[in-house]
Nucleic acid binder design. Structure first.
Length: 229
DNA sequence: GGTAACGATTGAGGCACGGC
DNA sequence: GCCGTGCCTCAATCGTTACC
């Protein structure tokens, strides 16, 4: 192999891992946190559900995130707005195609309706599975554990009030924000504590003169302070 | 038919209390 | 002290009912 300084790389002395990226796409579907799985067209695990993933291609991918974005395009026919790396998993028993497989796992929270993903390369169909019941899909490889990691990471962020403002509408009421967080966390939140923590972190600002009118008392509309600075 | 009174509902906020 | 829980009050609106 020719290196950038003109020298030639000697043959490797050590076996290298089978290196992949996996992308866990999360969304709220009917107010439940769900993960997008694709049904595999090819062995191994033909016909089983898995999170979209693919091999890192050093001839195509400038870095790991670029690899994840390419995989999302190829498998789902979508461009993802943002990705966050969860971490990496590796081991000898992870993938029957290789003696040792390494996966770098990314996640993204997306609007399932707006995403409009369609099955791409090596996928028969796509489906949104409830994140808390993903084991019922009998996911291929160790993808059940990877989904659990992605869900835990997202919920830990929401718990810390690192809110997914890119996932929210431009303006929202405190009730709508709390409902969204509760749906992502899969549990109810105390209104008083939630609002006090929001106020302490100074995350939101009221939109002057903007109220959400309905059958009852109009609610104040807010927007993310971070989006306006 | 028009109007007032009342209850139900929901958003917003406050406060006391207990566990850690 | 911090945080969650539970309960309360106040505001605003809608629907129902009673009264004129």
């Amino acid at each position: 192999m020719q290196l950038s300084d003109g020298t030639t790389q000697p043959p490797t002395l050590h076996p290298m891992p089978f290196t992949r990226v996996e992308v866990a796409l999360l969304s709220l579907v009917e107010n439940r946190l769900c993960v997008l799985l694709g049904k595999r067209q090819e062995a191994p695990y033909k016909g089983r559900w898995a999170i979209p993933g693919g091999v890192v291609r050093i001839d195509l991918d400038a870095d790991l995130e670029a690899a994840a974005r390419r995989v999302a395009r190829e498998r789902l026919n979508v461009s993802l707005p943002y990705l966050r790396q969860i971490g990496a998993v590796g081991g000898a028993a992870r993938d029957p195609r290789a003696p040792w497989a390494l996966s770098v796992v990314y996640r993204a929270l997306v609007d399932a309706q707006a995403l409009a993903a369609t099955p791409g390369k090596r996928l028969e169909t796509l489906g949104w599975w409830p994140a808390d019941a993903v084991q019922e899909a009998k996911p291929a490889f160790d993808h059940g554990a990877l989904v659990a990691q992605a869900v835990d990471a997202l919920r830990a962020e929401v718990d810390r009030l690192e809110l997914p403002f890119g996932f929210l509408p431009p303006t929202f009421t405190l009730g709508e924000l709390q409902a969204l967080c509760e749906a992502l966390l899969g549990r109810r939140l105390d209104k008083s504590s939630f609002r006090r923590r929001l106020a302490e972190r100074d995350l939101l600002e009221p939109v002057p003169g903007e109220m959400r009118t309905g059958a009852f008392r109009p609610a104040q509309l807010y927007r993310a302070r971070s989006l306006t600075n």
